[in-house]
């Protein structure tokens, strides 16, 4: 392509990226270092509301000459970041003198910084990524191989059913799972009938983590499956035939031919899933809608919940982006090296 026409082709998409991604991101960056609030004064007023008339002292916004509320804007430097990460309290929690057995002391050292919302959220997010990623890769590969074995009539319905958890809107999918696990609902009753006793999945944050992780795997595995399924269709016949001639067993063919062929797709699925895992919101909202003991949170939900204060929310958003980058860098570096070595 001539060098002159290239910018013309790229321009629309570049403009869209600047307008829709770069500018809002800069805006968030600006907000993260600012704060604004209304100037309040406490006044004594007579309030008439059901069921009574009372005189009370209430804070009220101070108005300017034109009758608009007076708002103070200030540049706060890193204060928003300090507020969300609360290094002082985190350090105090870490360095406090402790008694008891080693296990108790370790648990206390772990539990106390986690009580700070941001660190609590930070704890579960990577756990979610680390727990679900290998599971969806394995399950996706297994499904792709299994569907590959189903002949003719069964293949279509198998693919359709397998994709359902991925296609259906996450809120609906998460609800459909939660309803099975409520008190005396289908899954709870079935597990009890199977002799496992009454299991309360929703009783606290630790117990809730299991259905949320399982939901994450259930929801994302079909994505890995469909990518690997497509990858299998492009497997070169010659390599398999050559492997057969060489007397390679099924396991050897799987390892050296199929997995070697699918390797770039494994990187691709991992990359997409890690990014997706960072913005998991629906199951958290649906399963708990809140924070529980030992904090069941997720960074996205935390940002949504920072007291409707978009300045601290911006600071946590920036911190989250930094977190995503940290997790993505190893994968990107690996992909880059693989590409460069070709």
């Amino acid at each position: 392509m001539p060098t002159r026409t290239f910018p013309g082709f790229v321009a629309p998409s570049l403009a869209a990226m600047v307008l829709l991604i770069a500018l809002p991101l800069l805006g968030v960056g600006w907000l993260a270092f600012h704060n604004a609030y209304l100037v309040m004064e406490v006044v004594e007023v007579e309030t008439r509301s059901p069921p009574e008339v009372k005189v009370e002292r209430v804070p009220r916004a101070v108005l300017d000459a034109e009758g608009r509320p007076l708002r103070v804007w200030e540049r706060v430097g890193g204060r928003n970041f300090v507020n969300i990460t609360d290094p002082e309290r985190a350090w105090a929690a870490l360095s406090a003198p402790r008694t008891g057995s080693l296990g108790e002391r370790l648990r206390a050292v772990w539990a106390e910084p986690i009580a700070i919302d941001f660190w609590g959220a930070l704890e579960f997010t990577p756990l979610y990524v680390l727990a679900t990623t290998p599971a969806i890769l394995l399950l996706g590969l297994g499904l792709a191989l299994a569907v590959d074995r189903t002949a003719g009539l069964l293949e279509g319905p198998s693919i359709f059913l397998s994709l359902l958890p991925f296609i259906v809107t996450p809120v609906v999918g998460a609800l459909s799972i939660k309803w099975l696990f409520l008190d005396d609902a289908v899954a709870s009753v079935a597990l009890e009938a199977a002799g496992l006793g009454k299991i309360y999945f929703l009783k606290n944050a630790l117990a809730l983590r299991l259905p949320i992780l399982l939901y994450g795997i259930w929801h994302a595995a079909p994505f890995a499956f469909v990518v690997f399924h497509a990858g299998l269709q492009t497997l070169p016949k010659e390599s398999i035939e050559a492997a057969l001639v060489d007397g390679a067993s099924w396991g050897q063919r799987l390892r050296h031919v199929v997995l070697a062929h699918l390797a770039p797709l494994v990187t691709f699925v991992t990359l997409i899933h890690v990014m997706d895992a960072y913005r998991v919101l629906e199951p958290i909202l649906v399963f708990s809608g809140g924070h529980l003991a030992d904090s069941l949170q997720h960074l996205t939900y935390y940002i949504l919940n920072t007291e409707q204060n978009y300045f601290t929310a911006s600071a946590s958003a920036l911190s989250t982006i930094a977190g995503v980058l940290v997790l993505l860098v190893p994968i990107l570096v690996r992909a880059w090296r693989a590409e460069a070595s070709r």
Binding site: L139, L161, S162, L164, P165, V172, W179, L180, V186, W218
Partner: peptide, 15 residues
Amino acid sequence: LLVWLVLAGFPFLWM
């Protein structure tokens, strides 16, 4: 595959 198809389909069927 059979177990998975039940897990994938049942929640929606029940819904």
